[in-house]
Design a protein around this nucleic acid. Structure first.
Lengths: 186, 186
DNA sequence: GGGGAATGTGTACATCCGTACACATAATAT
DNA sequence: ATATTATGTGTACGGATGTACACATTCCCC
């Protein structure tokens, strides 16, 4: 150990601190869950004093709302972009498959955040609105290539595949994902 | 108002109190979520003093584990019973459809408990084991009538349909549930 | 029926949380 | 340059929570 380790917190007046706090909140939610998300934990992760969080946000709910909104926005955007880049239905099917396979094998955090949002939405009207906006947007993206009924059912199937796989001991392989989706779409 | 309303808590020495506490815990989880589940709230719902909860359970986690285990057991049993009562595949499909439609239109609590269990399982190894046992059991039930791959994918589809419908503004109709399942099973 | 074990109860305590708020510092307008 | 505002910081407080524990009551076996 080398001395008392300077506390060193000279980072006064940085713009964009609010943004960093939202990112820190998402990190905390993914790591400890909504239940473990506190002002103090967010401040610790963002390396700012406690008072800074209460200054930038009127309440914890406001932090959660902004964090989940940002996450949903980003996720929906990925969905949108991939599906708007293809023209025919076959390519759309491939896009959906690779999307799911990547979301699955990719960031585990994304799934955790989704589930955390679901349970939070079950009791918080504001977060429920965020969830519904997210769902609606991904459905709209699917409706570029599939009829509304198919889009909705396909959305549900995707959700189930991701959730089921993430909680299972042996995750589904990309091949199984492909098979399930193709079997539904025929 | 008629008087000071007798506090009246003469219920000393009732066997099965532990069971009632587990039921009370499930009620609390469904109403307030895992995050809102505390010793005191469980005691309040079960109408017993605080000390009684800490006497019967070593920790809050033990209460949650027992509660979720009981719920998963009951849910899996329903699944089992319905699917073991039919013989041919067509009847099995109908059983699955009515199962989902009833779980959907029926107890909203069941869905909430499922989602709460999912998020709790994401961070608690003990609860993850409970979840996996539950999943395995429902898969086994499906495997009575479908091959393993189909059973797993169908399980995921069911999960997605239920979850998606419950969080949406306009829930899916039984007809839409039927269509989605039939479309997957062809 | 007596004594030890099991079960039940009330209180107390250390800890953590959200939030409030007084004060400090930097940015900006005049 | 000065005044006004925006931003940042540290501390404090009331409330809730998990758990420990001393004491009461009932059960059960002899």
């Amino acid at each position: 150990m080398s001395g008392p380790a300077a506390p060193r917190r000279p980072r006064r007046h940085d713009p964009g601190r609010r943004d960093r706090l939202i990112d820190a909140a998402l990190t905390v939610i993914a790591e400890r869950g909504v239940a473990g998300t506190t002002h103090r934990e967010i401040a610790r992760v963002a390396d700012v004093p406690l008072g800074s969080v209460t200054y930038h946000f009127a309440s914890l709910e406001e932090v959660l709302r902004e964090a989940f909104t940002r996450h949903a926005e980003a996720a929906a955007q990925v969905f949108d972009r991939r599906l708007s880049a293809v023209r025919d239905r076959d390519a759309a099917v491939e896009a959906v498959i690779s999307l799911v396979a990547e979301d699955l094998l990719g960031s585990q955090d994304d799934l955790v955040l989704a589930v955390e949002l679901y349970v939070a939405a079950a009791r918080n009207p504001v977060l429920r609105a965020v969830t519904q906006a997210w769902m609606q947007r991904s459905r709209r993206a699917l409706e570029r290539h599939f009829d509304p009924t198919t889009a909705r059912q396909l959305d549900a199937l995707i959700e189930g595949l991701v959730l089921h796989s993430a909680l299972s001991t042996d995750p589904m392989t990309p091949g199984q994902i492909r098979q399930a989706i193709e079997r539904y779409l025929r």
